[in-house]
Design a protein around this nucleic acid. Structure first.
Lengths: 144, 144
DNA sequence: CAGTCTTCCTATCAACTAAGTAGGAATACT
DNA sequence: AGTATTCCTACTTAGTTGATAGGAAGACTG
């Protein structure tokens, strides 16, 4: 049960774009505010654009914006865009693991896990995550 | 959401040992019947023994046996024995992901996913998995 | 009791994939 | 034309997966 860096970065980037309020947000800004390696993030942004979740614009005032409203993009949409299938076992989708003999029952476990995860991530939208109460909208550095 | 080869192999090996009915099962037999690389499996068996899930015995009639009855070992026990924490985000446990700014809400998502997974894997025992109906207890090779 | 065989156990090394880096090509604005 | 930015491709690094070799412990045979 491992969430890859790619998936984590993709979600954080999408949230940062969504917080921009429709304005174009530059990749460098996303990398800076969420502490993501810029060149690695750029590859992730390409995936998100190809999946139809982001719109990009080049040039001086370029940047990224959500292709749909934040309440119509789920966490599951983002995970599938960058990672293919939602849950994989040894690189393969849980549906076709190919178990033999006494291990046959394992497939049902992975399918149940898959369903439980899907229930969470397909119900949670980016807008939901931006509505958390314990979050100061502007940062307040150096309190310590 | 990725299940590593190590976790998958560990579960399949535990099921094969449990199917032995208390008799000692050799590592080579486990590797053969479940099609697992023997040398890689041996490292996994060491983890399972150190976690107190398996007992090992050397010598001519040596092999492995369950340290507890199959209905007292859960899938979650096995996953934690070989993989540390049940769910990890970029290698770290979901509890302390350290999100900043607009991504704060993400931690709640991972905690919800963690809970959903734990509900499945901590409730399913090895004995449950051996009781699946669609499983011939003795193999029937070459039907095609 | 010596010898031998089988098995578990440990350490080391190669192949593969994910993570992170660097530089160049294409595009849009001034 | 010039500059800023996205976009694409090749390269390095770290961790996982899998292979090989040899040593240590128990069981049997003479």
């Amino acid at each position: 049960m491992y969430v890859s860096a790619r998936s984590d970065y993709a979600l954080r980037a999408m949230l940062a774009v969504a917080a921009g309020g429709g304005e174009l947000v530059k990749a460098a800004s996303l990398a800076d505010v969420q502490d993501i390696p810029l060149s690695f993030l750029q590859g992730i942004l390409v995936d998100l654009r190809r999946a139809g979740l982001l719109l990009s614009h080049r040039g001086t005032e370029g940047g990224y914006a959500l292709a749909r409203p934040a309440n119509e993009i789920t966490v599951g949409d983002v995970l599938r865009a960058v990672g293919g299938s939602l849950t994989t076992v040894r690189g393969l989708p849980a549906e076709r693991a190919g178990y033999q003999g006494v291990a046959t029952g394992l497939q049902d476990v992975w399918l149940a896990v898959h369903g439980a995860i899907a229930l969470v991530v397909d119900r949670t939208t980016l807008a939901d995550l931006l509505r958390v109460p314990n979050l100061p909208p502007v940062d307040d550095p150096l309190p310590s």
